[in-house]
Design a protein around this nucleic acid. Sequence first.
DNA 1: ACTCAACATACTGCATACAGAATTTAGGGC
DNA 2: GCCCTAAATTCTGTATGCAGTATGTTGAGT
Lengths: 232, 232
Amino acid sequence: MVVALVSTQTPDQNGSTNRIERTSLHDAIVTRLRDMIIEGHLPPGTRINEGQIGTTLGVSRTPLREAIKYLASEGLVDLVPSRGAVVKTFGAKEVRDMIDLIRTLEQFAAARACEVATANDIGAIRDLHDQMIDCYRTGDRLQYYKLNQAIHSGIVALADNATLYDVHSMLQTRLKRIRFIGHEGPEKWANAVAEHEEIIAALEARDLDRLSAVLGRHLTMAWERVKDSLPA
Amino acid sequence: MVVALVSTQTPDQNGSTNRIERTSLHDAIVTRLRDMIIEGHLPPGTRINEGQIGTTLGVSRTPLREAIKYLASEGLVDLVPSRGAVVKTFGAKEVRDMIDLIRTLEQFAAARACEVATANDIGAIRDLHDQMIDCYRTGDRLQYYKLNQAIHSGIVALADNATLYDVHSMLQTRLKRIRFIGHEGPEKWANAVAEHEEIIAALEARDLDRLSAVLGRHLTMAWERVKDSLPA
DNA sequence: ACTCAACATACTGCATACAGAATTTAGGGC
DNA sequence: GCCCTAAATTCTGTATGCAGTATGTTGAGT
């Protein structure tokens, strides 16, 4: 089986390779805006000023507004009638709820993955894990973080359920902003790495019970790491 | 606890009751378009002609396009560069995957509901159920169908997890179109009613194992009912 | 009759323009 | 000095217009 690591929102996963790179402006704006929110350039509660953002991005308000509507459906901004869009604020309970949901999704994905994943698929995850360990050793936090997410996404992708993958990605995206805050200290980081080691081992053994348990623990720890740095 | 039956996308659930009904055009168009897709007026694979739809709805292309982007993020349409939006086609596997995911979500919701729901909350579900039974007796299929959905949404709402509720609603919406197709015969209908009876009983007893099992069976049956009327 | 090319048409993508609501600011009364 | 009111400004919501791309059609060539 070939794992589809791309979301259904980027549909030409196997399009002819010589296709002209036709980056639609829509996607570009959506990505930029999302990044601005995730990276905190647009803090929670901020009203999005279409004129200002539009000029900084160098586009007119029309495609910008379309992108905002897209992000509204994604749950990153709220649409307030006659007052535009405001960056959504996540309180402690909402973050906790999202993590609970992610746990459910990952455990479901793990169950399917243990059934349908090929040795190759699992090997690919192992590769990501090994790279991540390297980053841990060298202290490259950013790259570590990205590989970390890729591994979780990869496990979900193993379940071969596109909708599951999309929903999981959406939730992961919403939490990116939060996780940026949670600067864990070295001891917690070491714990996280140990958990990841166990995740990979359980996956390679296709030991669903162990995999499910450690995934659950891993997400509980993620909650512990961020919960104190949250507003309400 | 007060069950929030509204999605976060309609934020003023407890706003002052004398608030002017300010139906934003955006929401109106989104709802209309969604209904047109669900009810089959825009069959899967159809290209959405902005000019035509715009004139029929009596609005200009600008807010219409914004609504289309919103639905694209919801997963009801695909965005094809330079060719606009096409109504998404769901094959058999995708529908099956979605039902698998809904099962996972409902079982998770059930677990939380058994913990946190009040007797009142459960009583409200029971009321919906009784109404639904009436519709079954009188043969009112449409109302039966609506109450059926309301019960499932209600159980998810009991879990008191807004994100969970939103995701579940989104998936339920995507499948509405499919379920319209699946005209079950009287014997299957009777089975579905019996399952619902058991769901309510298990919920009132807060018997998670039984509730989880019957919810799972219920969704498997839902799949059996629709699977033969699907394209690929 | 079929194929391919050039043209005509239709539609999307984006920018601009205008109307109305919301917010800010200035001014007057207490 | 503070608060309330009213003008002014800013910003959103919607329509329209224009350019570029895709699609459909016609006609010539084989």
